[in-house]
């Protein structure tokens, strides 16, 4: 119990007597992702003619939907102070199951796809909350296991053939893909839950201070379990979106998903260790990354440059944030 208290102190906020001053820079820093998005849009628009158009918006939205949906679940897990690196494999497994189950009808397939995610999330949550194992390590181990299961389901990429669901996956409503509508609706829903319901408030509480939760009658274990179930559910929804868009699923796509998703969440401004952040922040983070990717592709620049840019943005934003908050503080 004590350890957790100290853990928060180590991160620095013990000098509470110093009041945070709202400076102009501070306001700018709070809007940093928005400002960056505007800068990036202006830059790319001036460099490439076709960039500033609804077509670009369309392709960005369809690019970000799958990973964005996974990031929603990841945000909740990071909010309660955990990490889930098994999301990539949950995504492959549920995508594969979706396609494998197609012969039994679309509703059955979708149901099984989502249930698989919930089930894996439940397992993760059970180990983490009931057996009190570190979430990172649990999900790493689970990741290996799930990677194997994904290979069992299928050796390689499988495709959906002649199914209306693929049309749905690539359908567009006035430049906005259907899958993006799903994604945006989910983001709005989760944002509402986080900000306006007791359930959401409890997530923030668990992330901030577990000891206080015990004292307030909030069950840390149940909230943790629930967060990982949600993460599993959203990962499988991500798998669903990914598969109906590409009409395919592969057991091998899982490995780089967690790092990408975690990056998007952190870039958005949700803090690792829990307690601060929301899914709209995550939306802006993933939008920025996709924007850069899309812009560089239009400019015919090698896609690897985006990683460089993301890395630099991550570190420099953190650096600026530190400089702003450490002013006048002793221990941050």
């Amino acid at each position: 119990m004590n350890k957790e208290k100290i853990g928060t102190a180590r991160d620095g906020n013990i000098n509470n007597t110093v009041k945070k001053k709202r400076s102009v820079l501070g306001i700018f820093y709070n809007l940093r992702i928005l400002i960056l998005i505007i800068i990036v849009i202006v830059l790319f628009s001036s460099m490439s003619k076709g960039f500033f158009s609804l077509n670009t918006l369309n392709s960005i939205l369809s690019l970000m939907s799958a990973y964005g949906t996974i990031a929603i679940g990841q945000t909740i897990v990071i909010l309660i102070g955990g990490l889930d690196v098994s999301v990539g494999y949950i995504m492959s497994i549920s995508g594969l199951l979706l396609i494998k189950m197609m012969p039994y009808g679309v509703p059955v397939a979708v149901l099984i796809c989502l249930l698989s995610g919930i089930f894996i999330g439940f397992l993760n949550g059970l180990i983490i909350s009931r057996l009190r194992v570190n979430s990172l390590i649990t999900t790493i181990g689970m990741g290996f296991l799930l990677g194997g299961v994904a290979l069992l389901i299928s050796d390689g990429t499988i495709h959906i053939k002649d199914n209306p669901i693929v049309d749905f996956g690539n359908g567009i409503f006035w430049y906005i893909p259907y899958i993006a509508i799903i994604y945006l609706a989910l983001t709005a829903l989760v944002q509402y839950i986080l900000k306006r319901t007791t359930l959401g408030l409890k997530f923030y509480c668990v992330g901030a201070d577990r000891l206080s939760c015990t004292f307030s009658g909030i069950s840390n274990r149940n909230m943790e379990l629930f967060a990982f179930i949600l993460s599993g559910l959203f990962a499988s929804l991500g798998g669903f979106i990914y598969s109906i868009k590409l009409a395919a699923a592969s057991p091998l796509i899982g490995s780089d998903v967690p790092i990408f998703v975690i990056t998007a969440v952190l870039l958005g401004g949700t803090t690792i260790g829990g307690g601060y952040g929301d899914v709209v922040k995550t939306l802006s983070g993933i939008f920025l990354i996709t924007l850069i990717t899309k812009g560089l592709t239009l400019l015919n620049v090698e896609a690897y440059f985006q990683n460089m840019i993301i890395g630099v943005i991550l570190i420099s934003l953190l650096f600026i944030g530190r400089k702003l908050t450490t002013k006048g503080r002793l221990f941050v």
Binding site: I262, T271, E302, Y304, Q306, M308, G311, I313, L318, R322
Partner: peptide
């Protein structure tokens, strides 16, 4: 020295080195 979050910092460094290798 700058007391930045180790997770995000090393994640950023990882992206930069990775991109450098790819380039």
């Amino acid at each position: 020295m700058q007391r930045m979050n180790p997770f995000i910092t090393t994640l950023g460094i990882r992206y930069i080195i990775g991109a450098f290798i790819y380039i």
